[in-house]
Design a protein around this nucleic acid. Structure first.
Length: 277
DNA sequence: GTCTATGTTTGCGG
DNA sequence: TCCGCAAACATAGA
């Protein structure tokens, strides 16, 4: 569930604690598969002693820039979370990697479903280079979006979920953007009119900005949900118009919202606002 | 207790 | 190239 606004919320929260500038004094890995590309022992050895220089984001990846020319890339997948805790507090059974810092605090990766991945690399472009543009970046203009769509004939929802097409959107914000733009998720990309492309471009930036303002979307109260550092919930769930609102009235026209599956993903639409020609 | 769905990504086969 | 499907796992909710 962490999509761009949730990851950015986490990055912002990490930048408000005493983390950047600290030296990593040790690392412990409790679930080896969380570490991609190298054995956990090598990971721990290489990262220990590095100083954290910056925490940023690219797409849905958290990017930790370290000394020694290294970067730690973290993808939260479905249920990844980060806890910033004083060393010595009890480890929860879902905390799979613990980075210890020289101020006696730990950055702990908590991941109930264990799909999240950490990559320690000197060549981050090998992972990040494939990503499409940032949807709130300067380069993502309407003209650019039109060019990106030109000549491709793909179902629009899976296209928007494709991180090499555009980086950072997931199921929630795609459903919301398509509703806002009045576009059915099964529409084919090269049948969109200029007006629809413009509406979609604007809708993408609106739903993401709203998500950021609200510090992310936290649905329900489960373990695997989005929580920022210190367990803070996002409040964007209240701002959702269609996502997980099957059977309730469309905020625009009061028609009952329907759930369908598109590209194996649950999708939520207003059949009147988002007609399929 | 049992069964189904789940917000992400990758890799396979057609 | 594109699509559908399965898998990586654990939990919530019916």
């Amino acid at each position: 569930m962490p999509e761009m606004p949730e990851v950015q919320t986490l990055v912002d929260a990490l930048n408000r604690v005493d983390l950047v500038g600290r030296r990593i004094s040790g690392a412990a890995v409790y679930w080896p598969k969380t570490i991609a590309g190298m054995p956990p022992a090598v990971f721990s050895e290489r990262i220990t002693g590095c100083v954290l220089q910056a925490v940023t984001r690219r797409g849905k990846y958290l990017v930790f820039r370290l000394t020694r020319g290294l970067q730690l890339l973290l993808h939260l997948r479905m249920t990844g979370r980060l806890n910033w805790e004083r060393r010595g507090s009890a480890r929860s059974r879902h905390e799979h990697v613990i980075l210890q810092f020289d101020n006696d605090f730990d950055l702990r990766f908590h991941d109930t479903r264990k799909f999240g991945r950490m990559t320690l690399t000197a060549d981050p472009a090998a992972v990040l280079g494939k990503l499409g543009p940032e949807p709130l970046g300067e380069r993502f203009t309407l003209r650019h979006f039109q060019r990106m769509l030109a000549g491709r004939s793909r179902v629009v929802k899976p296209l928007l979920l494709d991180q090499t097409f555009i980086a950072g959107l997931g199921n929630i914000y795609v459903d919301e953007a398509l509703w806002q733009a009045g576009i059915h998720p099964r529409r084919i990309s090269d049948t969109l009119s200029d007006r629809e492309i413009a509406a979609l471009h604007q809708a993408i930036s609106r739903v993401l900005q709203k998500g950021l303002e609200n510090l992310g979307t936290t649905l329900g109260g489960g373990e695997g949900n989005f929580y920022s550092v210190a367990g803070r919930r996002g409040r964007n769930a209240d701002a959702l118009n269609v996502f997980r609102r099957t059977g309730r009235p469309c905020p625009r026209c009061k028609t009952t919202i329907e759930r369908l599956v598109v590209a194996q993903r649950a999708s939520h639409v207003c059949p009147v606002c988002q007609p399929l020609p």
